[in-house]
Simulated assay, not measured.
Amino acid sequence: METTPSANRLHIGIFGRCNSGKSSLLNALAEQQTALVSQTPGTTTDPVVKSMEWPGIGAAVVTDTAGFDDDSELGALRLAQTVRAAERCDVALIVCSDADCGLEAEWAARFRERGVPVVAVLGRCDRIRDVPGAVASVARELGVQPVAVSARTGAGIASLRAAVAAAVGEGADATITGDLVTEGDVVLLVMPQDSAAPKGRLILPQVQTLRELLDKGCMAVCCTPDGMQRCLRSLSAPPKLVVTDSQAFAAVSAMTPAGSLLTSFSVLFAGYKGDIGLFVEGAAAIDALDNMSRVLIAEACTHAPAREDIGRVKLPRLLRAKAGAELRIDTVAGGDFPEDLTPYDLVIHCGGCMFNRRHVLARVGRAAAQGVPVTNYGIAIAALTGILDRVVYPGKRMDL
C-alpha cells in the first residue's frame, strides 16, 4: 500500500464544521493519532493527509480538512485549503455533529453536482440522546441516510468503511492504454534519456504504462529514440503500438512504420486522468495564438527545471515558433493554479501523473466554465508538430 503512488489511490475527504469531530474520525479510521484533536475551534488549519489501506477499496488517501464555518482571522485562508482538498476528493464524508446541518447540505449538493459520492456521517453519536431522530433529520437535510459513529467508542466505524466502499462501487478501473492493445500485442516504448530524465529510474507515466502492458499480457519492448531503428529491425513484424515521450514525437513519428499506431505517454494520460475530447478541442486554439496572446502552462509536479525541461523550455519554444516570439507564457507548478483563468487564451496542462483524475478534471472544469480552451502537453505538441491526426488514444481506435 505504501508504494502505491498517491495519484493512484482513492482520495477520501472529511468535511464539516469546526469541532464536529472530523479529526477524531480520521484518528479512529487510521487507528492511530494522526490528527491533533482539541476543543479549541480551528485546531485543524492545513489539511491533514493520511495514507491507509481501506477495506473493500485498497490503497486510499484520507484528508482531514479545516471547518468550512471557520470565521477566525485566518478562516478565509483555511477555507481556501478546504476547497482545494475538495477538488481532489473522490468520495466526500460530510460530518454532522447534530441535526442542524443546513451548511453541510449545501456542501453535499456541491459535491453531487461534480459527480462525487457523498457519505453522510452523524458524528459523536455517543453524546446524542435521540440518535434515531438525529439520523432521520440528517437524512432529510442531506438526502442520504447517515452512518452514526463514535470515534471515542469505535461504534459505527466498520459500517462507515463499508458505506464508503459501497459508494465507490465496483466499476471497472480506467486503464491507460484502453482499447489500443490486447493480449499478445507487441508495444514499442521509445523513451528519451536526456538530462531531463531522472538518473537511474524511469518517470512515473513510463513505469505505470509498462506495468499495465505486462498485466495485459502484451510484449513490451523498450528503447531510446536513437536506438529505435535497430529495435524495429530486430522485430519480426511492426509493433502494434508505439508509445513515446511527447518531446520526441516528431522524430519517432518519422520512424514509426505505417502499420503501427502512434501515441505518447502524455496523450495516454490525458485520457486516463482528464477529458481527452476537451483537450483535442482545446488544441484548435493553438492556431489562433499570436504575439498578443497569453498561455498558461500548468505542471502537476514541482521540480527544479532542467536544461531540456519540456514544460518550461521545449513547449514554450514550439509555441513561440508558431505564434510569435512575443507570446506571453506563464508557468505554475504543483498545487498552484489560478482561480481566474480568463486572462489566458489557452491553458496547457501536463499529463497529471502526480494528480488523481478528480483533481485534473476539477482544473479542466474550471477552464471550461470560464470559456478558456484547455489542452494537454501531448496533444499540444502533436498539434504543433503536425501529427495530431495520426496520434491515437483510447476511444479513438484507428483501423489499420
Rank of each mutant, 00 (worst) to 15 (best):
P5C: 04
G13N: 06
I14F: 09
G16N: 00
G16V: 00
A28Y: 00
Q32D: 11
L36M: 11
T40S: 02
G42M: 01
T43K: 08
T44N: 00
T45D: 01
D46F: 13
D46M: 10
V48Y: 03
V62H: 08
G67T: 04
D70W: 04
D71Q: 15
A76D: 06
R78S: 06
R78M: 06
L79F: 14
C89D: 11
L93D: 09
I94Q: 12
A99M: 07
C101V: 06
L103N: 11
E106I: 01
V116K: 11
P117R: 00
G123M: 02
D126E: 12
D130T: 08
V135Y: 04
A136N: 12
A136V: 08
S137Y: 06
V138Q: 07
P146C: 04
A148K: 09
V149E: 12
A151R: 04
A151V: 05
A155L: 03
G156K: 01
A165G: 13
A166C: 01
A167V: 02
T175M: 03
E183A: 15
D185M: 10
V186W: 00
L189F: 14
M191K: 07
P192M: 08
Q193T: 13
I203R: 14
P205D: 01
V207G: 04
G217T: 03
G217W: 05
M219D: 00
A220S: 12
M228R: 06
Q229S: 12
S234K: 10
L235Q: 09
L235R: 11
P238R: 08
L241Q: 15
V243K: 09
S253R: 15
A254P: 01
A258L: 13
L261V: 11
L268N: 01
F279E: 03
V280R: 13
A283G: 07
I286G: 07
D287L: 02
L289S: 09
D290T: 08
M292Q: 15
I297E: 02
A306M: 15
D309S: 11
D309L: 07
I310L: 13
K314N: 06
L319N: 05
R320Q: 14
K322V: 12
G324F: 06
G324M: 05
T331G: 13
T331K: 15
E339R: 15
E339Q: 15
Y344P: 09
V347D: 01
I348T: 06
H349N: 10
G351D: 11
G352C: 07
F355T: 08
R357Y: 00
V360T: 12
V364E: 11
V364Y: 14
R366V: 03
A367H: 06
Q370I: 02
V372T: 02
V372S: 03
N376K: 01
Y377V: 00
I381D: 04
L384E: 01
Y393E: 15
Y393H: 12
D399P: 11
L400P: 13
